[in-house]
Design a protein around this nucleic acid. Structure first.
Length: 577
RNA sequence: CGGAGCGUGGCGCAGUUUGGUAGCGCAUUUGGUUUGGGACCAAAGGGCCGCUGGUUCAAAUCCAGUCGCUCCGACCA
């Protein structure tokens, strides 16, 4: 392609709306433009990136035995009523009616449609497994779209579905997709980690998320340095050494005044005790019912764990009025003693028998609390957020917490949808059985954003070679000079003949403009044709990632270029680890 | 939805406090000089100041409402 004929509106200044690097650079590099909140137009260059990503995804999914199809984006409400999600999916599902007043929605995902398809066609175990995928625009009416392509309302997603006859076969489909995902993100040149995850509103038995490691990530993941354990913190189990019961130091609890001490820190300061001897009592509302959650003073409640322990759908922190009504005290003085609602206590609290808790009375706390003796605990469970100081729940090794961007998610769905929608088949004994499903997503547009979050510098984007909009940008520094022009055209033709996807910057601009744009666009290989180099019989080259410059002999350009391109690629592989 | 902020030529902003009829940089067009890291000079075009209503002799500026966008919290690829 010739730059002069491309629609690549680069920007010198960053539009005010952009906050995160990927959004800023995508805008500046002329790859996307916002239409309205959470919806973007992919300009030619941005679309090239999406297509490069999709190409790799297609190759690997096909290699894993998945076939591509394309389902409608508009879906009938009836299907969603059948699966039960018309009620449960919530406001992210954009619903509307057609001219005949029939219910429809924009597809946020396609379990219903694909299950409907397969149940209509598949009758026998001999037809299983069925493995399908599509690359398509999804719509989710997100509460808060943000960070450009990172969390849009409309976005491009690859979604895949597997249907199997038995649980073992289903797990095979699952792990084969899991392996395909590893290859995909590897080939895309990303530093990533698959982690154990919660299955959220999609539902199912178990799942893994694929996380791109980046500071701008909205998720926190924990992984072990000594074994291969890795999990989203919202799921990571906390391991507690079984501790023997310590004897309490006092026979009874004692109530003391703690004026104005609302927070754990204030109470600790006032009583001159460590925060670890305080029990934090949090009031939550689970599906409309209030519950109390007890964790050590310095810990955070993990509401995903709470949701599972209570078998609830919806978990929210209670508001101030509710807390006051339940505890007869302002926020900050709640405690388990005498509370008339279910009390869930974190396992860690079993370790002690001499705690400080709120007294359900303004400006008061109990000292010397032994939960077993003084409170009625509905259930003990793992309820707190893991920390970097905790030991690995698998091997006891050292944990590290990092931020990540979720770019892929695989779910073992089990029979959740096939049961609800009667996707059945006859097994080899002529018995009717329910299909076992898996579903697997990759946020294609989010992958592009995540790649930029992970790979950029002050000059702009640094695309991994296989997702860059072009393999190489060829700068003709002096298009008005007949010799340079001829040489640049010759090299351009040569590269194209070699199968290199090359962008020729043939614009009548000053060299500085071309250098700046080349860096901004993040194309991995830069070739510079100018009279200075040509006088020495070379074209200059620059590795966008490392910034290393060199010179390739004009007379042996084909070989020299190939060797250099391989060198740049090796550099990427090395840094990916 | 709760909290914070912002809407002024294509982009980035000033002007709003203290009303007086819109300005700067970039970009664009034309001419000239330039040409290895976002050139310079000269000239030009382009703005119902988000929208509606109100106050006033007079509103970008004050008041009310409304719409849109961004950020912080509950969602997820």
């Amino acid at each position: 392609m010739r730059f002069s004929q491309c629609y690549i509106p680069t920007l010198k200044e960053t539009p005010a709306e952009a906050e995160v690097v990927s959004h800023k650079l995508l805008l500046r590099a002329g790859m996307v433009r916002k239409l309205t909140s959470g919806m973007y137009t992919y300009l030619p260059l941005g679309l090239r990136v999406l297509n490069k990503i999709s190409r790799i995804i297609r190759e690997e999914m096909q290699a894993a035995g998945y076939q591509e199809l394309l389902m409608p984006m508009v879906q009938p409400g009836d299907l969603w009523k059948e699966s039960g999600r018309w009620e449960h999916y919530g406001r992210e599902l954009l619903r509307f009616k057609d001219r005949n007043e029939r219910d429809y929605c924009l597809g946020p995902t396609h379990e219903e449609v694909v299950t409907d398809l397969v149940r209509g066609e598949v009758r026998s175990y001999r037809q299983l497994p069925v493995r399908l995928f599509q690359v398509q625009t999804k719509f989710r009416d997100e509460i808060r779209p943000r960070f450009g392509l990172m969390r849009g309302r409309e976005f491009v997603m690859k979604d895949a579905y597997s249907f199997d006859a038995t649980a073992q076969a289903a797990e095979k489909s699952y792990w084969e997709c899991h392996a395909a995902y590893k290859r995909i993100f590897q080939r895309l040149g990303l530093r990533f980690r698959p982690v154990e995850a919660d299955s959220g509103s999609i539902g199912g038995n178990f799942s893994h998320e694929f996380m791109v490691l980046a500071e701008a990530g909205e998720d926190m993941i924990a992984f072990c340095h000594d074994c291969d354990y890795a999990a989203n913190v919202e799921r990571a189990e906390v391991y507690h050494q079984p501790t023997g019961t310590q004897s309490g130091c006092c026979p009874t609890a004692e109530r003391v005044a703690t004026p104005q001490a609302h927070t754990v820190e204030e109470v600790a300061d006032f009583l001159h005790i460590p925060v670890t001897t305080i029990i934090k009592t949090m009031i939550y509302v689970v599906d409309g019912q209030p519950v109390a959650v007890l964790v050590r003073g310095d810990r955070q409640v993990n509401d995903v764990k709470l949701k599972h322990v209570c078998h609830g759908q919806d978990v929210q922190l209670a508001n101030a009025e509710m807390v006051t009504a339940l505890t007869q005290a302002p926020v900050g003085f709640a405690g388990p003693l005498g509370l008339q609602i279910p009390v869930y206590a974190d396992n860690e609290l079993k370790a002690g028998t001499d705690y400080v808790t709120g007294a359900n009375m303004a400006d008061s706390h109990w000292l010397h609390v032994d939960l077993a003796r003084d409170a009625s605990v509905t259930a003990w469970a793992d309820l707190r957020m893991i920390t970097a100081e905790d030991a690995c729940p698998r091997c006891g090794g050292r944990l590290e917490l990092t931020r990540g961007i979720e770019v892929g998610h695989v779910f073992m769905l089990g029979r959740k949808y096939s049961d609800a929608m009667q996707a059945t088949f006859l097994d080899e004994h002529g018995q009717e059985q329910t299909m076992i499903m898996g579903c697997y997503g990759i946020g294609v547009s989010r992958v592009a954003a995540a790649a930029i979050e992970q790979n950029h510098d002050e000059q702009g984007i640094v695309f991994p070679p296989d997702m860059a909009p072009f393999d190489c940008v060829l700068l003709n520094l002096d298009p008005r000079n007949a010799q340079t022009l001829a040489k640049a055209e010759e090299i351009y033709a040569l590269l194209r003949k070699m199968g290199v996807d090359v962008l020729l910057d043939d614009r009548e601009e000053r060299p500085g403009v071309k250098f700046k744009d080349a860096d901004l666009l993040g194309i991995p290989l830069q070739l510079i044709v100018g009279c200075k180099g040509l006088a020495r019989g070379v074209v200059e080259c620059k590795d966008r990632r490392s910034g290393v410059k060199g010179a390739l002999p004009v007379d042996k350009l084909e070989d020299a270029f190939a060797a250099w391109a391989q060198e740049v690629r090796d550099g990427w592989t090395a840094q990916q680890g």
